[in-house]
Design a protein around this nucleic acid. Sequence first.
DNA 1: TCGATCCTGTAG
DNA 2: CTACAGGATCGA
Length: 269
Amino acid sequence: MPELPEVEAVTRKVRRDSVGARIVEAAVLRARITLPDDPRVVEARIAAERIAGAERRGKNILLGLESGLTLHVHLRMTGNLFVIPDWRLHPHRLSAWFRFDDGRALVFEDSRGLGTLRLLDQQARRNMLAGAGLEPLSKAFSPQALSALAAASRQPVKLFLMDQSKIAGLGNIYAAEALFEARIDPRKAACSVSPAKLKSLHGSIVRILKDAVKSACIAYSRPGGFREAEGYSPAVYDREGEPCLRCRRTLIRITQGGRSTYYCPGCQR
DNA sequence: TCGATCCTGTAG
DNA sequence: CTACAGGATCGA
């Protein structure tokens, strides 16, 4: 489920529930999620650590440990990370769990198991942060910055928006939603989108992500896991064949970079 | 830039 | 049964 808004909601909740907690035992249940590192080594290095902080960068969750190591979690398609009140009451489909000294546990739930878990030293952490693109909800993500990035890319603008090394955190849903709101054809090369549309796109990205963060925080606020995103309903995503909310033309679905793109052939040009 | 791949679940 | 899934990476 997670793009930036959902990852932000998860991170805030994990921060609230786990900062200060002492881990007494760690278990990696799917060996491949720590590749290329050995899961046993990761477990051993985490045990006895205290969680010092929780941050989000793009779609990445970074849990700071008191030793200076960083636990890097990526939820990919179906991951979720949350604290449960009793470590013995595991949900199903866990990729990993971390038992606290107070009996609670931080669990990494993931039905598809594509999510990853890695331990970063200070240098690896810096590299990770340096490699990520602009935070779309930060000051650095200005209209000018977006224009400069777009000018340098000949990719279709939808794929450009999803490139995590340029802008960090947009995924398939919110990229499509932002392009709809800004009336841009997703197939158009990023460098060929007009300055006026790019300006509009910048506003749409920020507005849509801020709204979605709010919705996601509500959706994830219940104890345990998450619920359907209440409040946020996409205008184009997953609405193939339905009428455009702006011009009533039938929305269509195409494939870009192996993923579905939904858009309105009438008002996105 | 395309397609396959990592997995499991669900909808049609 | 097939197609597809809110992600990312790899090789052709």
